[in-house]
Design a protein around this nucleic acid. Structure first.
Length: 276
DNA sequence: CAAGGACCCTGTTTGC
DNA sequence: TGCAAACAGGGTCCTT
């Protein structure tokens, strides 16, 4: 389940692996990969000859700026991940490849995605802003724009705090694993309404958000199921998680068994004793 | 605006 | 043990 730390790990690895490389060919046979159906047949023509100038991220979206002015935007959704194949690195597990980009030096960039939820868009010069505006994408959770004040505004709503953390129009980048971990670290019950939280509690969420997401990035993300780094290796945040998918196990703080409930249609794990 | 459900997908887990 | 049904979840869209 790629969230902000997994996407950031991917971006950093791809910068090292494919920045500045020239595209020799591009191929996909997965029509679901593109919202605009005409892209599937045009992808090779669209990308061949172009050069990857920069790689960035906003929330869970990856942004590849190309020399032509076009932008390749990608979302890994549930099971998607990028893999880099080169002379040094021939990953054995190359299943479910939905997009293959070959560079002039024969390095390959693959997008693998068992469930075909992942999406790729090719935007014309200048379209990125409206792309995100259309989706009402909020500030990224670890960007400088995500201040305490911004968080306070974004979370002062009627809905459950867990639902707000998951909502990409409130804060961008947090998914189901990290929302549970952040609320545990901040000692906030996932079903509390956002607007009922007092300043001190929002501050605790703000601190926990930075701490947990950065811990996730340092760990190279979580490889609970399908997520892999672009070299095929696993992240290890899953070994550090305190509550996510630990129903019945003792809370690391107070030993009370972790509970599981459903909030906003998502499995939610928390400690009923130390999260109020 | 909020809440809930359907949908997209398929590997894995659960239940009989 | 074996099989089918339920589940998992990010995001979008639709209805209530």
């Amino acid at each position: 389940m790629p969230e902000l730390p997994e996407v950031e790990t991917t971006v950093r690895a791809l910068r090292r692996a494919v920045l500045g490389k020239k595209i020799k060919s591009a191929n996909s046979e997965t029509h679901q990969l593109f919202e605009n159906k005409s892209i599937l047949d045009a992808i090779n023509t669209l990308l061949t000859g172009d050069i990857i100038k920069s790689i960035d991220r906003h929330g869970k979206y990856l942004i590849f700026d190309l020399q032509s002015g076009r932008t390749l935007v990608a979302h890994m959704k549930m099971t998607g991940h990028f893999l880099v194949i080169n002379k040094k690195l021939n990953i054995k597990n190359q299943n479910y490849v939905r997009l293959e980009i070959v560079f002039a030096d024969n390095t390959k960039l693959l997008f693998s995605d068992a469930r075909k939820f992942g999406r790729i868009w090719i935007l014309a010069d200048g379209e990125l802003e409206s792309f995100f505006a259309k989706r009402n994408l909020a500030h990224d959770a670890v960007s400088k724009l995500c201040t305490k004040g911004y968080l306070y505004t974004q979370l002062s709503k009627k809905r459950a705090i867990k639902a707000l953390l998951l909502d990409q129009t409130c804060i961008a980048g947090i998914g189901n694993i990290y929302s549970d971990e952040i609320l545990w670290a901040a000692r906030i019950h996932p079903q509390r309404k956002g607007r009922d939280l007092v300043r001190k509690e929002i501050d605790a969420i703000f601190r926990a958000m930075g701490d947990i997401l950065k811990e996730g990035i340092r760990a190279g993300g979580s490889s609970m199921r399908d997520y892999r780094r672009p070299d095929g290796s696993s992240g290890y945040f899953q070994t550090k998680r305190r509550v996510y998918q630990r129903e019945g196990e003792p809370c690391p703080r107070c030993k009370t068994p972790i509970q599981r409930v459903v909030v906003a249609q998502r499995g939610t794990h928390f400690c009923s004793k130390c999260q109020k």
